[in-house]
Amino acid sequence: MKLLQVRKGQLVYFNNELHKVYSVKPLAKKSVLMFRLKDMEQVASKAEQVSYYKPKHLDSFLFLGARYTLRDDIPAEPGGYIFITKPDPDYMDHYSLNEFEKVESVEGKDVVTTRQNTVKFREFFVMVPGEEPGSNDITYFDKAKVAPEQLDEDALLEEKLREENAIKPSIGDVYLNLDNGATAMVVAIEQDIVTMGTGDKLTFHALYKSDSWNYLYSINSTDSDL
Rank of each mutant, 00 (worst) to 15 (best):
T222C: 05
D142Y: 06
A144H: 04
T69H: 02
M40S: 09
K120V: 14
D223E: 10
T139L: 02
T195Q: 15
D59V: 02
K54T: 08
M1T: 00
T114C: 10
Q10W: 00
F141I: 01
K160W: 04
H94I: 13
Y91H: 02
T195Y: 10
Q5F: 04
N214I: 14
E107D: 13
A28W: 03
V6I: 13
I84G: 04
A166Q: 14
V126L: 07
V126D: 01
K160R: 14
K20C: 04
A206T: 14
L62V: 04
E149K: 11
G197V: 15
H19L: 01
D137G: 02
V6T: 12
Q116S: 07
H19A: 00
S212M: 11
R162M: 15
G79V: 08
M92R: 11
E99T: 08
D39F: 09
T85F: 05
L161I: 11
I193Y: 09
S210N: 08
E107W: 07
S96G: 10
P78F: 09
V6M: 01
A28V: 02
T69G: 05
Q150T: 12
A76P: 00
Y95M: 07
D39G: 08
L156D: 12
D192R: 12
S60T: 10
F83P: 03
K160P: 05
L18R: 00
M1R: 01
T114A: 05
N177Y: 10
N136E: 11
V119M: 04
